[in-house]
């Protein structure tokens, strides 16, 4: 029996980089929290922590969908617009058309999934060259539609059932918190313990190998865009609850935070690599940074610079992790 031991050597050699990749964002988040708790006494108080969670919650939902898309080596630029559109559809259905709230919520979620499905179809049936194109188109279309159907003005007076998820508390705990925990657990199980989840990684990691293994790549791609649209709509529902209204520019630029969170959380733009847990960390890195800089009265311009720098740092960790492998395959 011959021994193939070089894998072990590889492992030992790269372990610090792998450690950084796996826990870098978490270490960064912990450091940020530590520093902020010294700089401002408000940061580590329960009301502020709950506030951060509520602010992070929308991005937390949207980013999960974007994670699935990025795992397939794709991108979804339309999630912010889809969020705005589905929120508007739900609000109009309920407030203007008088639909019962549960039905309006279903319609809201369906409209998000439907736009996601269109993204998937544009990619797999129209064969648009890259999801950047199809979802860029959808970014514009969905925002335009939202402005049309809302006549560019906010819709308030949502029924309690619709605002419950994003706006209600159980004691001191916002409803969205346990909801997020459940959604994240479901996504974790989905990605790690189901055949479909495994195939999402495979399609992103090596589409040719996936096809040869009998996986229907196109079906998987459509599915991830549908789920991305659905999660955007769920984010729209949560946002409607938090602001107690629907408004035409809801979700503007949200795709950028979602993509940033997924990337900061260690997912690879080349597909096949990324975790639910990492994405959650990425979401909170952004939320804590925003919150901390707010508390320190630092202007929003600097928040953008900070997020940009963190993205560079996070992706650089990915680059140095990839480098040794590229080398070893060249030898």
């Amino acid at each position: 029996m011959f021994s193939l031991t070089s894998a072990r050597n590889n492992k030992a050699k790269f372990s610090w980089a792998q450690f950084l990749l796996r826990y870098g964002a978490l270490i960064g988040l912990a450091l940020m929290c530590l520093i902020l708790s010294f700089l401002t006494p408000v940061f580590l108080t329960l009301p502020n922590i709950l506030n951060v969670i509520r602010q992070a919650s929308i991005n937390a939902l949207v980013a999960l969908g974007v994670l699935l898309v990025i795992l397939t080596a794709g991108i979804d630029l339309s999630v912010g617009s889809v969020l705005g559109f589905s929120m508007a559809v739900g609000a109009i259905a309920s407030v203007k058309l008088g639909m019962p709230a549960p039905l309006a919520i279903l319609l809201l979620l369906f409209s998000g999934a439907f736009l996601g499905w269109l993204n998937g179809i544009a990619l797999t049936k129209l064969n648009l060259p890259h999801p950047f194109i199809s979802t860029l188109a959808m970014l514009n279309i969905a925002r335009g539609l939202t402005l049309v159907i809302t006549k560019a003005s906010p819709i308030s007076g949502l029924p309690h059932v619709m605002t419950w998820l994003g706006g209600s508390f159980i004691g001191p705990v916002p409803v969205i918190l346990p909801f997020l925990v459940i959604v994240y657990l479901i996504f974790h199980l989905f990605l790690n313990n189901t055949v479909l989840g495994r195939h999402i990684y495979a399609v992103g990691g090596n589409p040719i190998a996936a096809r040869r293994a009998g996986i229907n790549n196109k079906k998987i791609l459509v599915l991830v865009y549908v789920l991305a649209g659905f999660m955007s709509a769920l984010g729209g529902l949560a946002l409607a609850g938090r602001v107690n209204a629907a408004y035409p520019l809801a979700g503007l630029n949200y795709e950028l935070d979602a993509i940033a969170a997924v990337i900061i959380g260690g997912a690879s733009f080349f597909g096949g690599r990324g975790t639910v847990f990492g994405t959650l960390i990425g979401v909170f890195v952004i939320a804590v940074l925003r919150n901390g800089l707010n508390l320190l009265n630092i202007r929003a311009d600097y928040q953008l610079i900070g997020i940009g720098l963190i993205i560079v740092a996070a992706v650089y960790v990915d680059v140095i992790r990839q480098r040794p492998f590229t080398r070893s395959s060249e030898v």
């Binding site: 495994r198 495979a202 090596n206």
Partner: peptide, 20 residues
């Protein structure tokens, strides 16, 4: 191009024919 790099060995061996 037969393997999916980010997946572990059992996932690759059973790719497309996973045991449930």
């Amino acid at each position: 191009l037969a393997l999916v790099d980010p997946l572990d060995i059992p996932s690759n061996i059973f790719l497309g024919r996973e045991l449930r």
